[in-house]
Amino acid sequence: MEPNATTNENLNIYERAENYTKTSLELLKLKTVYSVADGVSSLASKIAVGVVVAFFTLFLNVGLSLWIGKELGEYYFGFFIMSLFYLIAAIILHKMHHRLIKTPIGNSIVSSILKEK
């Protein structure tokens, strides 16, 4: 009777370990799906806001270019001045892109993936 009890006990431990492993894997899958879904939905909403801001900026720049050009006497002067402004802004962003863009976005992505809900 003694060997049989040990076998049943080992089998019971094996079943528990198997169930624990399956449950842990399922939990890991669900956490992964949640993290990916949260990241994709955040990205989609940020893209939508970015598109609206891009259109706003486009129309604002055209308006400013026309207004500056009118004040200077020729419309193309306004577009040249706005282009020069964006060239200077691009140079500044290129020089400081790690501090202004890469680090904050990287931190945001990591924190959204690692956050607990």
Rank of each mutant, 00 (worst) to 15 (best):
A44M: 06
I13Q: 13
A17V: 02
H97T: 04
T57M: 12
A44V: 15
L72K: 11
N4K: 07
H98C: 03
F56D: 02
Y75W: 11
L43A: 05
L27A: 12
V51F: 09
V53P: 00
N12W: 04
K102G: 01
N4C: 05
E15R: 06
N8Y: 08
Y76I: 11
S65T: 04
K70N: 15
E26C: 03
N12R: 13
V49P: 00
F77L: 09
V53N: 07
G106L: 04
I109M: 12
I81F: 08
E18C: 04
V52R: 05
I68K: 02
T23A: 12
T103Q: 13
Y75C: 01
L43G: 07
N61E: 06
K31E: 15
N8R: 13
T7W: 08
A17C: 07
K46A: 09
A89C: 06
I88E: 07
V52T: 02
E15F: 02
L60Q: 11
N10P: 01
Y75L: 11
Y14I: 06
N8D: 09
A44H: 08
K29H: 14
P104K: 04
A5V: 14
S41N: 07
I109A: 14
N10Q: 12
S65H: 01
S111G: 07
S24Q: 14
E18Q: 11
G78V: 00
F79I: 03
N107W: 00
L66E: 12
L30R: 13
H97M: 10
K95H: 05
V110Q: 13
H94E: 14
K115R: 11
K117D: 11
I13F: 06
D38N: 09
N4P: 02
E26I: 09
L43Y: 07
G73S: 07
L100M: 14
T23V: 03
